[in-house]
């Protein structure tokens, strides 16, 4: 601890002595605060502050992701660790560059983006593509909008859409069976679309079906999501309305046309739905902030997801529906707020 303190102190000294290096002061400050916390005190009322800060807030999302992450390392091998490391390093560098240019502190939101991004990729994606995707996602998904709190789209999803659309052939060859070296192109959703094959639902829950890195161990995702709801980090309204709507829409569709609409229970468990509903749709920045808005958002997400899965050429619709609804979130909020606060007549 003393060594750490000394190191930070030394870095401060070096940075302060050099004109060009001074730009990186916010970065060192961020590191300093990360390790040692703050010495600031309240200046006015309220004289006391809640114990939580954004670092803890974001750390808890990471804790919620841990079961799925650890299971994925077990399923897909140490490669996953390398992907996460690459994602953190390159995404982190992008953040540092932007904070140096803007001379603003480095924000903690990246801690979550950097972990979520590799978790939504197929397991065999090359590492350079991880780096490219996360840099693109952080830069064009977040920083160009003005940084944390101002982005419209979920940065991890922006990166994921970019790489999947830019390199579709690499992407489709990157799926693999968990716990084996068999390369496959058929995720359960592809299986339904092409052959109406529905795998055992328990195998979906426990993670022995192919899929993106973080989405296969679904028990872990559900546990992590419920944990986050219990500690109030994510709002229960979004996952509930999203999953509920998928269930309702899929059951109705399946009753009318079982050829096109997969059964509801399968739809709930297949693909990235659970991961998206608990960890991506609930991102507070890109989802509506009003409670009513959150219900609407979740319901529309459900409708769009099932529609894309069943009625379009794509097999999976979670990513697109979340990005699409991200774009509509401000509109939903505006409508809700305008309904709630009537104009003042004079």
């Amino acid at each position: 601890m003393k060594i750490l303190k000394l190191a930070i102190y030394k870095t401060y000294a070096i940075i302060n002595s050099n004109k060009h290096l001074k730009r990186f002061k916010p970065v060192v400050e961020a590191a300093d605060e990360f390790f040692f916390g703050t010495d600031k005190v309240t200046l006015f009322t309220p004289h006391i502050e809640d114990g939580i800060d954004i670092k803890r807030y974001m750390s808890f999302v990471i804790i919620g992701l841990l079961p799925a992450t650890i299971a994925s390392i077990y399923f897909f091998g140490p490669r996953v660790i390398a992907m996460i490391a690459v994602s953190y390093i390159f995404g982190g560098l992008t953040e540092v560059v932007f904070s140096a240019v803007r001379r603003k502190p480095v924000h903690e939101g990246f801690l979550v983006t950097g972990l979520i991004f590799p978790l939504v990729l197929p397991p065999l994606v090359p590492l350079w593509m991880v780096a490219l995707g996360v840099v693109f996602g952080v830069m064009f998904g977040k920083e160009v909008f003005g940084g944390t709190g101002r982005n419209i789209f979920n940065p991890a999803l922006v990166g994921r859409v970019f790489v999947s659309l830019a390199f579709p052939s690499v992407f489709s060859a990157s799926w693999k069976m968990p716990l084996s070296d068999t390369i496959t192109s058929a995720t359960p959703l592809v299986g339904f679309k092409s052959a109406h094959a529905i795998p055992d639902l328990y195998s979906l829950l426990l993670g022995s079906q192919p899929g993106s890195i973080g989405e296969v161990f679904r028990i872990g995702i559900i546990a992590g999501g419920i944990f986050l709801i219990l500690v109030k980090i994510i709002d229960w309204r979004i996952p509930l309305s999203y999953l509920g709507m998928v269930f309702i829409f899929a059951s109705l569709g399946n009753k009318m046309n079982p050829e096109v609409f997969a059964p509801a229970a399968f739809q709930l468990l297949a693909g990235g739905l659970l991961f998206g509903a608990f960890f991506m749709a609930t991102d507070p920045v890109t989802s509506p902030f009003t409670k009513t808005g959150r219900w609407v958002y979740g319901i529309l997400l459900g409708v769009i997801t099932v529609s894309i899965r069943s009625l379009s050429g794509f097999v999976e619709g979670v990513m697109f529906s979340i990005l699409l609804m991200n774009a509509f979130a401000p509109l939903i909020d505006t409508i809700v707020v305008n309904l709630r606060f009537k104009e003042i007549r004079k």
């Binding site: 703050t38 600031k40 005190v41 006391i48 502050e49 939580i52 924000h107 939101g109 944390t148 709190g149």
Partner: peptide, 20 residues
């Protein structure tokens, strides 16, 4: 426990909705 510490640094609003 109670004291005047801020327990964190100021960051941009993430619209978590707790204040609401």
């Amino acid at each position: 426990r109670v004291d005047t510490n801020m327990h964190g640094e100021e960051r941009p609003c993430i619209s978590c909705g707790w204040c609401e």
